[in-house]
Nucleic acid binder design. Structure first.
Length: 627
DNA sequence: GGAACACTGT
């Protein structure tokens, strides 16, 4: 049998006309096949060896599963070609990258390769990343550096992807530096990967810097930069980027870019934009895939077009778990809880997998609808029938479910028996329920636990102080107010978004930053008269500033939601619906105010509050004042 | 041989 030898000298190769060189490009080292001992190196022998090697390659490439591969591997070993760089590399690629391959097997082969080069390392990186073994990939890169093997331009994208998935900023930055040193910073794929890596690590400035410095951008560059903004909650920026891309006309958008843009529309409640994206989707993509369709449904639902969402959902030929998930939580958001549960049973009938997210939707539908027994039923079914361990979110839903129904002791027992540490959301849910049901005893327990978590949420103090006020415990109210004052600086700024003529405007409380803020305040002033005439009186109980009553009223008047409504009234035609989206729960006064506006100006006003829609029409709200 | 996408409780 022939053996493989490393051939150090090119001279020898030149002399050895019949002997052949294998894989110089791969290993940067020439190799020859030597004849069995005592036999001369003849052209015939080399030809037959070459043919044999080809046979090995074919054998490896034909494999369709691990069993076949193992057999082929055994044959290659028998023929003595396992050291041939071609054969070894092919074997490695098949193991690491085929759908049925095994990375463990690949690792063994890799270890047996005489001198693995950049190509073999890259193959291993790709295999590891594909198998979500990011640490292993980065670890192997260290070995590569120690061995002094030069990475090439294919090395960086895959490793940057590993960093992106791990949110490993430090490693990512190191790779960036190495890439620059080796002169790969101008490679399009490296740049795209950098955009993505920095985005996933939350370093949007770094991500944008790479994007800005690119000479040419392709669709992936745009895709990456929009996704980076989207995942960090910078939805307006994301949409602006999408529009830039569309208007530049240099790239034809692909499905992924549409999906990102639609996600931004969902979060912003930007229906007009959503429609534009839908339009270009129909123009550019002939057949919409499941992901795009699901995103469209999600967008319509979150932009208050629930019926359009349902219509698209029903027309879908192929639905997956996520499509159902979007529909279930969407229906729950709009208070159509029975329908949500019906869709859930359809999902089960379809025989699709159920996951924890779907159950969050199901349980929240039960809690909104006050279906206590059903909620308990689904909760235990989730654990015992589907083997899903409840997460903090499921417990949150259960606490909400029992809390709304006034079963406060049960809710507290559940929190105490939870195998997970309760978070601030859980306690806050219970505090709110205690306030509604005026249970001071449990309320105090919950409030104490909430305070221990130091979550700096100003609304906690409002609920607490209101709870004490209703019970007439004024010393406690005073104490809470002082404590609150101390925390003022750390509160999250609330904002309202409103879409007017395809542009999304953001308002914060007391906002003076808009170009036409004077018109807006003038409008607020006019509205005040109308409101007074209709019998509205401001409710300052939730104004969280320690000032006198008159000043409180002034502050109340310029809450972000009111500014957004005033702006929309000025800028839209009579009777047009107004859609507002906010990051925080609205205060009682804004709720009452909006009800009055809906009747005075004859407008339908929808306010989206995180995951709940308030639909104001003719002076009433769809939540029936309980939210 | 390389990059990118959707759903989560107050």
């Amino acid at each position: 049998m022939a053996t493989l030898q490393k051939c150090g000298s090119l001279d020898r190769l030149c002399y050895d006309v019949g002997g052949r060189m294998i894989g110089t490009s791969v290993l940067h080292q020439p190799y020859i096949l030597s004849p069995p001992e005592g036999q001369p190196q003849t052209t015939e022998l080399n030809l037959s060896l070459k043919l044999k090697e080809q046979e090995c390659l074919l054998l490896l490439r034909r494999c369709k599963n691990m069993e076949e591969l193992k057999q082929a591997h055994a044959q290659v070993l028998k023929w003595g070609f396992h050291q041939s760089p071609y054969c070894a590399s092919n074997l490695l690629t098949v193991c690491a990258l085929s759908n049925w391959g095994s990375m463990d097997y690949a690792r063994n082969i890799f270890r047996q390769i005489y001198e693995p080069g950049t190509y073999e390392f890259n193959t291993m990186f790709r295999g590891y990343v594909r198998d979500f073994k990011m640490e292993s990939a980065l670890f192997l890169y260290c070995e590569m550096s120690e061995r002094g093997i030069e990475p090439n331009k294919f090395t960086y994208p895959v490793l940057l992807k590993a960093c992106a998935r791990l949110s490993a900023l430090e490693e990512g930055m190191q790779l960036h530096a190495h890439g620059i040193k080796l002169g790969f910073e101008d490679d399009l794929f490296v740049q795209n990967s950098l955009i993505n890596m920095y985005g996933k690590c939350g370093k949007i400035e770094a991500s944008s810097a790479v994007f800005e410095h690119m000479d040419q951008r392709d669709i992936a560059s745009w895709s990456g930069i929009t996704a980076a903004h989207n995942s960090l909650g910078m939805w307006r920026e994301c949409l602006n980027l999408y529009m830039d891309m569309a208007s530049e006309g240099l790239c034809r958008a692909e499905e992924s870019t549409f999906v990102t843009a639609l996600s931004a529309c969902s979060h912003l409640g930007a229906l007009d934009y959503g429609r534009i994206v839908h339009g270009s989707l129909l123009r550019n993509i002939s057949e919409l895939n499941v992901i795009v369709q699901t995103s469209l449904i999600d967008m319509y639902i979150k932009c208050d077009c629930i019926d359009k969402g349902i219509c698209l959902f029903e027309r879908m030929v192929e639905k997956n778990q996520l499509s159902y998930g979007v529909m279930i939580s969407g229906l729950a958001m709009h208070g159509r809880n029975r329908e949500a549960l019906r869709v859930f049973s359809e999902l089960l009938e379809e025989g699709l997998e159920v996951d924890d997210v779907i159950y969050v939707g199901v349980l929240s539908a039960c809690s909104h609808a006050g279906l206590v027994d059903e909620g308990h039923h689904y909760f235990s079914r989730m654990k015992f029938e589907h083997g899903i361990e409840p997460t903090i979110q499921h417990y949150g839903c259960m606490v909400d479910l029992m809390g709304r129904a006034g079963r406060l002791t049960e809710a507290l027992d559940l929190i105490r028996s939870m195998p997970i540490e309760p978070n601030d959301v859980i306690w806050r849910t219970l505090v709110s329920a205690c306030k509604v049901h005026q249970n001071l005893e449990i309320g105090e327990i919950a409030a104490k636990s909430l305070k221990q978590l130091n979550s700096d949420n100003p609304s906690d103090y409002v609920i607490l102080s209101n709870m004490y006020a209703e019970a007439g415990k004024w010393e406690n109210v005073a104490r809470i107010r002082t404590e609150w004052h101390y925390k003022t600086s750390t509160q999250t700024p609330g904002f309202s978004l409103v879409e007017v003529k395809r542009k999304v405007y953001k308002f914060v409380s007391q906002d003076m930053s808009h170009a036409n803020f004077q018109d807006i305040y003038e409008m607020i002033h006019q509205m005040e008269w109308q409101l007074k005439f209709e019998g509205y009186s401001p409710d300052t109980s939730q104004v969280l500033v320690n000032v006198d009553e008159e000043e409180k009223k002034q502050i109340l008047k310029a809450h972000s939601q009111k500014l957004a409504i005033a702006f929309a009234l000025i800028k839209t035609s009579q009777g047009a619906p107004i859609r507002i989206s906010r990051n925080l729960r609205m205060c009682n006064d804004c709720h009452t105010y909006t009800k009055f506006i809906s009747v005075i100006y004859q407008r339908e006003i929808t306010v989206r509050e995180r995951n709940l829609f308030h639909h104001f029409k003719d002076g009433a709200c769809s939540c029936r004042d309980y939210w």
